[in-house]
């Protein structure tokens, strides 16, 4: 089901949290609402689910206008961060509750509970109480409960935040598998860029109640629309350098990069260079500096380089490079991967 949010406005009392937001999620697509806490991503999710009222704009599920429908009458499955399983009910009762509310016959409920339990691989746990389950199992129950009535859209609110690192990896692919198999439209709310990039077809990166950029993970990583987007994606994060565009991109103290071809740039700029695009293994224009920190990571090392102008540039070098602290270096930069941002933060 295609989800279409148009000119969405949300206020709490006198403060407007979200103003004039537009978001379209295609049928069967999984999209991530990514952003730091307080950016309005959960508010958007709650508005779509019906828990919060929509103060302005419209929301359509397919062709149906659901803007003013209460949560009960929208067909939305939600997986909460703490799973919100009903502690006094067994796993089967938890999963079957949405159907029980719809007054389906017990036999049919049981059949469908069994079916969905197999899908999320918890068929052997149906008689347990939520308290007796591990975090990953609770997550699966929550997914099953959200999916059982075949909702128009599945909303996931930070579903992996309460899991340990290993489980998180497992559930990441598990949720994606379920979404693909059921073909359901899904919205994932997360503050974790890796989750967003690894699980979703598209990412909507939010900031202060606005969508900063919406595109596929690769696109967003490779051509971020703004300084903010560039800084949010990537681990280790991108390095920013202040530069002055003239005949070249002057970094001061003798360091300079050639002007990019086909771009007319002028004045004060910010350059964004990802660590993987700068290092001893790269050709291209050199930047000189002194190694200030080496962080071994196994396969490769993370190296901080202090430029003479006092700015810092991060590089990734394959291990076995034999570099030492305070060594003077001059390494190549991949110019075609250089991001240039104007004074207002937008990408040039």
């Amino acid at each position: 089901m295609r989800i279409h949010l148009q000119n969405f406005k949300k206020t709490f009392g006198d403060t407007t949290v979200i103003e004039d937001m537009n978001l379209t999620v295609e049928d069967g697509e999984m999209i991530a609402l990514l952003g730091p806490s307080g950016c309005g991503k959960s508010t958007t999710l709650f508005a779509i689910s019906g828990i919060h009222k929509i103060n302005g704009g419209t929301l359509h599920f397919g062709d149906k206008d659901v803007t003013n429908l209460p949560a009960q009458e929208r067909s939305v499955g939600v997986v909460f961060q703490n799973y919100a399983l009903y502690p006094h009910m067994s796993v089967a009762q938890n999963i079957g509750f949405p159907l029980k509310v719809q007054k389906l016959k017990t036999a049919e409920i049981n059949a469908r509970v069994g079916e969905i339990a197999e899908l999320v691989q918890i068929g052997n746990l149906l008689d347990r109480k939520p308290m007796q389950l591990s975090g990953g199992q609770q997550q699966r129950v929550a997914l099953a409960r959200a999916l059982i009535r075949k909702p128009d859209v599945l909303l996931l609110d930070e579903p992996l935040a309460n899991l340990d690192a290993k489980l998180r990896l497992e559930m990441r692919s598990e949720i994606r598998r379920l979404q693909r198999e059921t073909g359901i439209t899904a919205i994932l709310v997360t503050h974790d860029q890796i989750e967003a990039m690894s699980m979703c077809d598209r990412i909507a990166l939010m900031k202060d109640g606005r969508i900063e950029q919406i595109s596929t993970p690769t696109q967003m990583y490779e051509s971020p629309a703004s300084h903010y987007v560039a800084s949010f994606l990537g681990n280790p994060p991108i390095s920013f350098l202040q530069a002055k565009a003239d005949a070249s991109l002057d970094l001061g103290h003798g360091n300079a990069l050639p002007l990019p071809i086909g771009k007319a740039v002028q004045g004060e700029l910010t350059l964004g260079i990802r660590p993987e695009h700068f290092g001893p293994q790269h050709d291209g224009p050199k930047i000189s500096g002194q190694i200030s920190f080496i962080e071994p990571q196994g396969r490769e090392d993370l190296i901080d380089v202090m430029l003479p102008c006092g700015q810092k540039l991060r590089a990734i070098a394959p291990s076995g490079h034999g570099l030492k602290l305070e060594q003077d270096i001059s390494w190549g930069t991949q110019m075609d991967r250089l991001h240039i941002f104007g004074a207002d933060g937008t990408r040039l």
């Binding site: 019906g50 828990i51 949560a71 009960q72 703490n82 919100a84 409960r145 009535r149």
Partner: peptide, 27 residues
């Protein structure tokens, strides 16, 4: 009682009264 339990109930289609009666009261 976590708000999310209540929200989950509402999302599952239950009225507020039913949420209270079947989901919250037992807690």
């Amino acid at each position: 009682v976590p708000w999310e339990i209540e929200m989950a109930g509402v999302q599952d289609g239950a009225s507020r009264f039913r949420v209270w009666r079947e989901l919250i009261l037992p807690q």
